Amino acid sequence: EPLWIRPDAPSRCTWQLGRPASESPHHHTAPAKSPKILPDILKKIGDTPMVRINKIGKKFGLKCELLAKCEFFNAGGSVKDRISLRMIEDAERDGTLKPGDTIIEPTSGNTGIGLALAAAVRGYRCIIVMPEKMSSEKVDVLRALGAEIVRTPTNARFDSPESHVGVAWRLKNEIPNSHILDQYRNASNPLAHYDTTADEILQQCDGKLDMLVASVGTGGTITGIARKLKEKCPGCRIIGVDPEGSILAEPEELNQTEQTTYEVEGIGYDFIPTVLDRTVVDKWFKSNDEEAFTFARMLIAQEGLLCGGSAGSTVAVAVKAAQELQEGQRCVVILPDSVRNYMTKFLSDRWMLQKGFLKEEDLTEKKPWWWHLRVQELGLSAPLTVLPTITCGHTIEILREKGFDQAPVVDEAGVILGMVTLGNMLSSLLAGKVQPSDQVGKVIYKQFKQIRLTDTLGRLSHILEMDHFALVVHEQIQYHSTGKSSQRQMVFGVVTAIDLLNFVAAQERDQK
């Protein structure tokens, strides 16, 4: 057995438009009618409502009807409940999964919650491996369901041993009777949507819809739904939504950006999952974080739909894509998950301010006199920076000697690579993860907040409520011999709460 199987392995699926269902090699399930009293909570997966979006479509000038398939009504709160249950049931049916076995899954959280929910009911041990950027709410729900959680670096490539995929496979090879159901490759993922989600949409719309818009992560949702719609409703256009920084969209030119990270969760990847059939997507749109969270908040405030950030991405694209539809036509959007997962993220004004998705003037509360002053007023001194090749031991000596707790790590040209902190280095040394002679590049981390000289002290204040420091950066445009230009970030300084307090105190003292 291989040590790991690539999540982007070539698909062996034989589905073709027009091929009889009787030739399918898979076990198919028909939607079942729910009894009045459910035998367990797993029976509350599927049969989610279709809700008309009344205000947002009109606000953006849509002539067509805009409908939302509300997947956050599933038992675990997301569309991923469907595939989690289906993968477990299919693994039980073919004898792969037996009582007492362990389920391991690399996930952005929602599939993990679905699997942990099913594992709690069915009696399996469950280990979820997820990147650090995923919300604390997801972690809390997983723990409450009895799952064990392993976190991995957000910026690790999918084929790196440190990625959530790599760590999951390492655990599988170490733990007896453990299984990775593997949402990236498992046919049960798109089949769950082909058999149930798509049929529900067709039934709820009486077979009449002209466009379907869905955000894409593993691709199982859009693949399964689109294949069924292509068979039953061939005139329906399928629109895929991919965040900026991901590479799922086609044509490839759409993916060209210097951005590699994004805040919206559960969609987009740096590889093409095996289950994603991009041939059934008629057109791709890219979405960005700001519009995703703005539209998610709009869905909550104006439509009462308590959905997550990827739902915002989907609707932001839908109001663009559906401009081509006329009166009497219908566009369906998939709202994948609930706001429950993001209470401390985009639902929080403070978080939105820190990330730059909300401006101070958007909030009406009274601010102190210094709130709208610029960061450049602080008069920061030149920063202490270190090269990635310097040793951890030497870096600790320098920081202690100069009285700093942290320093930016830059390359020879001064471009920011990340940050090192005294606390992080000492804990890594004590844990045996690094040696004093190791290069400081081994303990770089990139989960820090950046701020510009033109940003306000109010925004800085919000950042420092949650973080010990902020890195002050400025952009530099560099022209190359080819005539092309590129933008790079340079370090201007490091600012802490002490710097802000000293500035405010000094100004008030001078005024007296």
Rank of each mutant, 00 (worst) to 15 (best):
Gln439Met: 05
Lys402Leu: 12
Thr456Trp: 14
Val415Gly: 12
Trp369Thr: 01
Tyr262Cys: 06
Leu363Ile: 08
Lys446Ile: 07
Ser338Leu: 01
Gly483Phe: 11
Lys345Pro: 01
Thr260Asn: 05
Gln478Ala: 08
Lys283Thr: 01
Asp467Met: 08
Lys345Ser: 05
Gln507Leu: 09
Thr364Ser: 11
Ser481Gly: 15
Gly268Cys: 01
Arg509Tyr: 08
Gln256Met: 08
Lys320Glu: 09
Lys283Ala: 10
Val473Cys: 15
Thr391Asn: 12
Ala301Gln: 07
Ser338Phe: 06
Gly308Glu: 01
Asp467Ala: 12
Val317Ile: 11
Leu387Ile: 13
Val317Ala: 03
Gly268Asp: 01
Lys345Gly: 04
Glu258Phe: 11
Asp455Glu: 15
Thr257Ser: 12
Val264Gln: 10
Gln487Lys: 15
Met352Val: 04
Tyr342Trp: 01
Val415Asn: 01
Ala505Gly: 12
Gly312Tyr: 01
Ser486Val: 09
Cys307Tyr: 01
Ala301Pro: 01
Gly268Leu: 01
Pro388His: 07
Leu500Ser: 06
Asn255Glu: 07
Thr454Arg: 08
Thr421Val: 10
Pro388Arg: 15
Arg459Thr: 13
Gln376Arg: 14
Ala322Met: 01
Val264Ser: 01
Thr274Asn: 06
Leu325Asn: 01
Ala316Val: 06
Gly312Arg: 06
Thr496Arg: 07
Thr385Phe: 08
Tyr445Glu: 01
Gln507Thr: 01
Phe271Ile: 01
Ile300Phe: 08
Gln447Thr: 13
Phe357His: 09
Thr454Ile: 11
Arg350Cys: 07
Lys345Arg: 08
Ser461Lys: 05
Thr456Asn: 11
Ser481Phe: 12
Val409Ala: 15
Arg488Ser: 15
Pro251Asp: 03
Arg452His: 13
Leu299Tyr: 01
Thr496Ile: 11
Phe448Ala: 01
Asp270Ala: 01
Ile463Gln: 13
Ala407Ser: 14
Thr261Tyr: 14
Glu263Met: 09
Leu460Phe: 14
Glu290Ala: 06
Arg452Asn: 12
Thr279Ala: 09
Thr260Cys: 09
Glu365Val: 10
Phe285Trp: 04
Lys402Glu: 15
Met425Phe: 10
Val375Ile: 10
Asp277Pro: 04
Lys359Trp: 09
Val440His: 06
Leu384Ile: 04
Phe346Val: 03
Lys367Met: 11
Thr261Met: 06
Lys449Thr: 01
Glu327Thr: 14
Leu347Gly: 03
Leu422Ile: 14
Leu500Ile: 14
Trp351Phe: 01
Trp369Ala: 15
Gly245Tyr: 04
Ser461Tyr: 05
Ala301Arg: 15
Gln450Asn: 15
Ser485Val: 04
Leu426Ile: 08
Phe357Asn: 04
Val281Ile: 05
Thr482Val: 09
Asp277Cys: 07
Met425Ser: 05
Gly266Arg: 14
Glu263Pro: 01
Ile477Ser: 06
Val504Trp: 15
Val494Tyr: 01
Thr257Cys: 08
Ala296Ile: 04
Cys307Ala: 12
Glu290Tyr: 10
Ala296His: 04
Ser287Pro: 06
Pro388Ile: 01
Thr364Leu: 08
Gln256Gly: 11
Asp349Ser: 09
Gln439Asp: 01
Phe492Ser: 12
Tyr445Trp: 05
Ala316Ser: 01
Val410Gly: 12
Lys449His: 01
Asp467Tyr: 01
Ala249Ser: 04
Arg400Ser: 06
Pro436Ala: 11
Ile498Tyr: 11
Leu426Asp: 05
Phe271Tyr: 07
Leu464Tyr: 06
Thr391Met: 13
Ile451Asn: 11
Phe271Asp: 01
Arg509Asn: 05
Leu464Gly: 07
Leu422Thr: 07
Glu377Asn: 01
Leu254His: 13
Lys512Val: 13
Gly304Ser: 05
Trp371Arg: 10
Ser481Arg: 14
Trp370Gly: 01
His474Asn: 01
Ala407Gly: 12
Glu265His: 01
Ile300Asn: 01
Glu508Leu: 14
Val491Asp: 01
Lys320Leu: 10
Ile416Asp: 10
Ala321Leu: 14
Val275Arg: 01
Ser428Gly: 15
His462Ile: 14
Arg340Ala: 01
Ala316Tyr: 14
Val264Asp: 01
Gly432His: 14
Val375Met: 09
Arg374Phe: 10
Phe293Thr: 04
Thr389Lys: 15
Arg488Met: 12
Asp499Arg: 03
His372Gln: 14
Phe404Lys: 03
Asp289Trp: 05
Gln435Asn: 15
Asn341Glu: 04
Pro243Cys: 01
Ser481Asp: 08
Pro436Tyr: 09
Ala505Ser: 11
